[in-house]
């Protein structure tokens, strides 16, 4: 069997999680590599969460929030966006490709877009190959 990456995805409760649910109710098919964690707002996603995911063996982290201007909490997604750019720089310094972390806007009605994103992102992570953080950390400790 070909290499199957592990992808952790953080979805905000109001837009993206609902969008992912819609992909399900519409019976769209996408790659099974994406595992979803629900948070109330993309603004809740701490840098630690992302780093923890890599530490535990994730090959990619996908964050989805409401479209700019549509945040249920008005501006949580903007906070997330700021952190995202910073975090991308940070993981690059750790030696990870910045593509291993990705932020996309998925609204509650964008089930199709979510399914397509999951497929496309899984493909791009497959190309990058396995992330070695977990192995390295295990050797180090």
């Amino acid at each position: 069997m070909s290499y199957q990456p592990k992808i952790v995805s953080f979805l905000c409760n109001w837009c993206s999680y609902t969008g992912a649910d819609l992909a399900g109710t519409s019976r769209m098919k996408y790659a099974p590599n994406v595992r979803i964690i629900r948070v109330m707002c993309s603004g809740r996603i701490e840098p630690t969460f992302v780093l923890k995911a890599f530490r535990e063996g994730a090959d990619g982290v996908l964050i989805c929030g409401c479209h700019p201007g549509d945040c249920h909490y008005h501006e949580g997604n903007y906070k997330c966006l700021r952190r995202y750019y910073l975090l991308q720089k940070y993981i690059q310094q750790m030696g990870l490709k910045k593509e291993r972390l990705r932020l996309e806007w998925i609204s509650a009605s964008e089930g199709k877009q979510f399914a397509e994103l999951a497929d496309e992102y899984t493909e791009s992570i497959k190309e990058l190959g396995p992330c070695k953080v977990k192995e390295v950390m295990e050797v180090l400790t």
Partner: peptide
């Protein structure tokens, strides 16, 4: 744990869906 909308309804391989 959402294993219907985000698992059984969106995947086609029983083994992979079970793992997920």
């Amino acid at each position: 744990a959402n294993i219907r909308e985000q698992d059984s309804w969106v995947h086609t391989d029983r083994k992979e869906a079970t793992e997920k």
